[in-house]
């Protein structure tokens, strides 16, 4: 039955091949670039860099803001993910489970943070902070701004999840005399879990990637990974140094991905709830 469900696989396999190559090739090249010693320039006519050393790695580890940036970003992002999730839950519950006048309008309002270009948001948010004398609380300011910016994602995803909670399951649980907690566990949790995981994952990634707010509000005490990348890979890029950063920053992400893939697997409703 599964076999019959598959759509023609040839284009999908080609796509997979492209995706794999597109991951393997650039990162192999990045490794080579990162090993170029300043004493020998690597030109396209040679297959490998003429002089290989770990000089760039040492230089970047010691002289770039890599260390604080990693610490900051990987503290900020998980916190932002949890805060955003908590703020979004009640709204998503209302949107997913109730019908009320103006619901479509509310859904549109929820998209507002996406519609405003983040640089505009960043500049005026920082100006508000200064006027209120709160500018020194950079971490909390960025956290708040990230939570607001990423609420639309969380609300959309969780609304979908709440919509997918099956009313017959809720009713059945209630009819069988389950307590509210029990009802949540049986009827809500299986449908919500993938949404919650997706929300945490997406907000985490968005927060790790966010540049405008982190830069305008965060400098100079608060360097994040994107502000670091922007300065290294932007207009004055130096390929070798940029390659070192790209590689170092890929490592935590790969580990993270493995963990999340596990989460998502265990959150698969078709597997965990025996539904369908």
């Amino acid at each position: 039955m599964i076999a019959r469900l598959r759509i023609d696989q040839a284009p999908i396999l080609v796509l997979l091949l492209i995706c794999t190559l597109w991951l393997l090739i650039p990162f192999t090249m990045a490794v080579l670039w990162s090993l170029v010693d300043p004493s020998g320039t690597w030109t396209p006519d040679t297959l490998l860099p003429p002089v290989i050393s770990l000089y760039r790695w040492e230089f970047m580890w010691n002289n770039s803001l890599l260390q604080p940036a990693l610490l900051n970003s990987y503290t900020l992002a998980p916190t932002a993910a949890v805060v955003t999730l908590l703020l979004a839950m009640p709204t998503a519950y209302a949107l997913g489970r109730y019908d009320f006048p103006g619901k479509e309008t509310v859904k549109l309002i929820a998209l507002l943070p996406l519609v405003v270009p983040t640089f505009v948001t960043a500049i005026f948010f920082s100006s508000i902070l200064f006027q209120m004398g709160l500018a020194q609380y950079r971490f909390f300011a960025i956290l708040l701004a990230h939570a607001v910016l990423f609420l639309p994602f969380a609300i959309r995803i969780l609304t979908v999840s709440f919509e997918q909670v099956r009313q017959d399951h809720v009713d059945a649980a209630r009819d069988l005399g389950a307590s509210p907690l029990e009802r949540f566990r049986v009827a809500y949790w299986p449908a919500l879990k993938p949404g919650i995981m997706a929300t945490l994952l997406i907000v985490f990634i968005q927060s790790i990637e966010e540049f405008a707010i982190a830069y305008i509000v965060g400098t100079p005490d608060f360097t994040t990974v994107p502000t670091l990348l922007y300065s290294q890979l932007g207009q004055d890029f130096n390929r070798s140094n940029a390659a070192v950063l790209a590689l170092i920053l890929a490592v935590p992400n790969v580990i993270l991905m493995l963990i999340l893939e596990r989460f998502l697997k265990s959150a698969n409703p078709a597997l965990s709830s025996g539904k369908g």
Binding site: W22, I205, P226, L233, F237, L249
Partner: peptide, 23 residues
Amino acid sequence: ISAILKAPLLVHGIVAAFLFLNV
């Protein structure tokens, strides 16, 4: 397969652009 497909989520846009340019 799912991991390979989702990998781009965890590669920074700026990094991806930079690597793409090199390729």
